[in-house]
């Protein structure tokens, strides 16, 4: 569930500015038959613990590939682009999946890759 919309009308997924507790449930995502519980924590526990507020910890789909019922790949929006990358806007600054026009974002750092070449064949 989004926490409202940003100034361009896109849903805001992040919650309030109060720091959440580690291990607290951020949200449950349901994407084409795949259910994901996302919890707060630290990505780099050794370095980040005690530094500041924890963040939603998204699954690492690069190491644990996950596909929807329709065969589309779940991706981390901050992950490196693949060979089928097609920028959604000119002059994309970072080589992230977030810059790819095939990415359908479902949360700040998680989405579905709608590229047919990455689709899992049944």
């Amino acid at each position: 569930m989004s926490a409202g919309r940003n100034i361009r009308g896109a849903p805001i997924y992040a919650t309030s500015t109060e720091p959440p507790a580690e291990g607290e449930l951020y949200r449950t995502l349901e994407i084409e038959g795949v259910t994901l519980d996302i919890f707060y924590g630290y990505y780099d526990p050794e370095r980040e613990r005690g530094v500041l507020e924890p963040m939603p910890i998204f699954p690492d789909f690069q190491n644990d590939p996950t596909y929807t019922e329709l065969g589309y790949m779940l991706v981390n929006a901050d992950g490196d682009v693949c060979e089928h990358f097609s920028p959604k806007a000119e002059g994309s600054e970072e080589g992230w999946c977030n810059d790819c026009r095939y990415l359908e974002l479902h949360d700040t750092c998680l989405g579905v890759c709608r590229c047919e070449q990455n689709r899992k064949n049944e």
Binding site: N6, I7, R8, G9, A10, I12, Y13, A14, Y43, D44, R47, E48, V51, M55, F58, A77, D78, E94, W96, N98, T108, C109
Partner: peptide, 20 residues
Amino acid sequence: LNISVSTVRKIILTAMNKTG
């Protein structure tokens, strides 16, 4: 900031989402 690059990317994406 002594954090991982991956974390930096995620925080920037979150900020970009919040600010549109």
